[in-house]
Amino acid sequence: MRRIVWSTMAALALAIIAAASPAMAQSKGKIYYMVPTLLDEFQTGSVDAITKFMKDVGYETVTLNADNKTDVQQSQMNDVINLKPKAIVLAAVDFGALAPYIDKARAAGIPVMIFDRQITTTKSDLTSVAGTVEIGQIAADEIEKLLKTKNGAVKGKVLQVLGDPGDPYTLDIQKGFEDKMKAFPDVKIISLPALQWEASNAGTIVADQLVANPDIDLIFVHAAHLAVTAVASLEAKGKKPGDVLLVSSNGAPVGLDLIRKGWEQVEVEQPLYAQAAALAMFADKVIAKQELKPGSYKVLGLDSTLTTEAWGANIKIPGAAISKANIDEPRFWGNMKAPTEPVKPVE
């Protein structure tokens, strides 16, 4: 028995040593990507995209997953600062709580690039976003059109299923959405959160609300994986595709599948590939601490605008509304056709 235990431990130790061995490939250096979680498809997709595009411009990417825990990400930042990488790419679990760690990294001479989750409370070296508030606004525009088509005017009942109520990402989408919808007092919005972004919690909310409010016209969920259980609940209540309209955000493959099947009408996409590519395009300049010139840039063919904000250089790439009309365009990351053309650094 003891032999088995020792053999197991030895094998485990070897595996850990092998995993920790430095990569042999030559590169300009390491960039650490601090991903908030690997439990949703956008984030796992971002790991592949950032790794690929950074490799295109000569950097090796090491990814650390914070499991959606702020304290874990804070510790990871401390560890990575000690490793002195070329740069850190941060997609923060909590926008505010990571600000002091960005300051600490920059004070140690390590540039920090912000991916997807904008931090405006402190300076960083480059932020690449679609804008979470803007996603809510785009969703509001699309929902306005859908309600008008269905009811003849912008009126009706909308069930908004948020993600975890402790996640600023979902609160920003809610803010963008509800601010825009204030213009339509005849639209009643019922907002409920799916704790921990867990899909079956979203299904439960939809099931309850379909009984309590059978006249719901449209369901807006803040992530595509929540739409799957929303549809399961609709199906269980005997609804057919289109009976209750469905809008989702982030552009994950599941959302696109639901559009193809007719259950979902619009998916508001975060341009994952372009957001990741933008960081790679400017990585050399950021690491060399050169000035990033404001202006218009083409990122994977998308018109993007780089501005200088109070928190530093900020490149905004517009999110897109995906519907049946444009769903097959390869630029949508949900179609899982990553660009094969290498990204070129900005001169």
């Binding site: 921990q196 299904g203 799957v228």
Partner: peptide, 16 residues
Amino acid sequence: LLAIRSSGATANLGTG
């Protein structure tokens, strides 16, 4: 049963 309810599975299914 969860897979049946969700018509599949996500990586965070059942969290909590």
